[in-house]
Design a protein around this nucleic acid. Structure first.
Lengths: 217, 217, 217, 217
DNA sequence: CATGAATGAGTTTTCATTCAT
DNA sequence: GATGAATGAAAACTCATTCAT
């Protein structure tokens, strides 16, 4: 994801973040040592303290680096709300899924570590999760209002939607080794997106009893 | 869950496992120290090595303790396959959900740590996940055969089903603090079960429009 | 050495001593754990404390078990002193060499550990080494007196004699891997004994050139 | 030997090695704790890991530090081979004896620990002991060829020569307390050297009586 | 006679961090 | 901007020993 592209020597800070994402993902935050990251990034371990103050600072940077862009996707997608709740939700899901695919390692460890660092999480949630919930709520409410979605408890709907969205990134090892699904591959996003759309169309909208058929775009 | 109830001195081994589950869940495996566990279990930290050899041994014990019973639930539920795939799957989902609720902390950390300990995971998967996949596959195939389920890629269906099943336990902090859903509470299982049934009935079975086939590409 | 021969079940104490000798020899006293010994002897580690009080007690037992018999050999050989100093010394060397071969592991580790456990060594020396020195001194003095041995500093002669006697057992690994000499093999004692006799005959006695002095630079 | 003399603060690495040599010698490798060494060297115990990775690394460093210089002495002495095998061998013995005296503690514990650490020993031997054997063999073969030495099995000759050379350093406690010989003292080397020369002259060369047989009983 | 459970003290090692350069 | 040296604290683990049985 941090492609580094051009030939110029990548700077230390980027190298550190890149190494941190890889290692935090594969060994967990607490299981990764500063020196491990330094070794991977080919910098001295003091350099990490230099840029991020301490290990927690590096984690926080990763969290923010992730959620800042994550939230932007949501906000951007929400602008299409006037096209209808279902369309808007599909747009949002499509964008988030793609974002996760492009940052699969980061997404993977961020989702996992969120559960463990209650202090950091609390702050993150106060800014990002609340925002996410706010927009999803808006969309759902609009969907109920305009009879697009079958009425239902919003928290439970969010749970299901996020479950479907996050699952493939929460245990990529299982996905790979047992199901032979590779979330970073080209076609995964396309195929899986249809499945989430199916949930939207059939379970969320439950359109059939709505009177008119032929739903899926 | 391991209530310990009575006043008699609980044996050390159980006390250790109990403490480990609590702490591994709240601080992660790598973030929990042996001494922390010992302190909580009110035993000397050498006692942990005595029973489980080392920290990894304790983790493995927890994994097996979880998956052994998890797999039993699946096998038990599968016996009702002759009542039809949908009924059987619902039975299985209900049993697993209840099992998770009864062991929510254990489930929570096991699912998370699975992603990090590839070596242990590999062995666990070789025995338990493969078995789980086998039974789910059987049920889905039966469902397709008898036209109960809309035909679809089995790995992708497993992904969704497991997503819905596991999600509430993978980030209980988020569930609690943002959505105000408490997975260990009485009513949660009942309510959430309906949602998974809805997915089965509407997205998996998509039952009404059975005549006009091929909705999903 | 502790042959155990007959079919009757070897008792625990013997099994412990046997295991201790093997392990102390290959890993050193400090490098061997009580539980290691217990595992090898197929007894519970508490049994060792039961018989020998503690680890040091087991070591001391080994030391005494060795030196008691070692000293007996010396005393026995010394009885032939009236046959002449050279003959007596040869007898003594032959007996000690054979004794060492029969107890090569025990000899090996006892010699090594003597250097490390100054407290125990001090006591051992006060009883056994002093006795050994006493007899050797007697033999050398008799040899000088009767013009069998070329006069020389007794401590330096003891040094050389003990050097030749102990060397093959002090680093059996080197003997085996570099020189391809196996001190526990049948023919070793025979061959090596001749070499020590050569030292006695030529260097200690230096018999032939008795008239023309000052050979040594 | 590492005198440290001047008042300037000795660097940590040297201080550690110095302390390690002293303590490994007096208490054995396994009997010495990292913290003991650190205390003696007046550094933090983590500093040892910093420089030598771990305790085994420190041991290995000592081994190499010893054998590197030991081997150099041999190679240097070997250059005098054209002056005759006996002269060359005496040179070699004199140099090694002096080297050992100057590094008596190091020599002492290295010889002892070699017997215990088979893995490290194997590697050391593959480089140093083999080299030593090679040169000794060359000298002996030359000695046989030119009729300087009485023909004999080379491994057995090496055994005796090394026995005489190493003995005073293998159990200095015994040397001191029983024989009252102090290998690090000025005169020891001079006096003991004569004894080894006597072995070379009389037992190895057995020069005078070349014509008339019946030497060895 | 012998042991399983449990421990306290000690071990090595790892780690994040600091600081002079 | 970046680092090598060094460290204090804490981690996991090992060990000899005890004690009730």
């Amino acid at each position: 994801m941090l492609e580094g592209g051009l030939l110029m020597k990548k700077n230390s800070k980027e190298a550190i973040v890149e190494a941190a994402i890889t290692l935090f993902n594969s060994k967990g935050y607490a299981g990764t040592s500063i020196r491990d990251i330094a070794r991977h990034a080919k910098v001295n371990s003091a350099t990490i303290s230099y840029y991020f103050d301490n290990k927690a600072g590096l984690l926080e940077y990763c969290f923010i680096h992730f959620f800042e862009r994550y939230t932007q996707k949501i906000e951007a997608a929400y602008t299409s709300i006037e096209k209808g709740a279902r369309t808007c939700l599909k747009q949002l899901v499509a964008d988030l899924l793609q974002f996760q695919c492009e940052n699969s390692q980061l997404a993977s460890f961020v989702y996992r570590e969120m559960a463990v660092h209650s202090q950091v999480s609390r702050e993150i949630m106060a800014t990002y999760s609340i925002k996410e919930k706010y927009y999803l709520q808006k969309i759902f409410e609009r969907g109920f209002e305009w009879d697009e979605f079958r009425p239902h408890s919003i928290p439970y709907l969010i749970t299901q939607l996020k479950a479907l969205l996050m699952m493939p990134f929460m245990n990529t090892f299982y996905m790979r080794e047992v199901l032979y699904i590779f979330p970073h591959e080209k076609f995964f996003a396309q195929k899986y997106l249809k499945d989430i759309f199916a949930w939207i169309d059939h379970t969320l909208c439950s359109d059939i009893p709505m009177k008119k058929g032929k739903l899926i775009k």
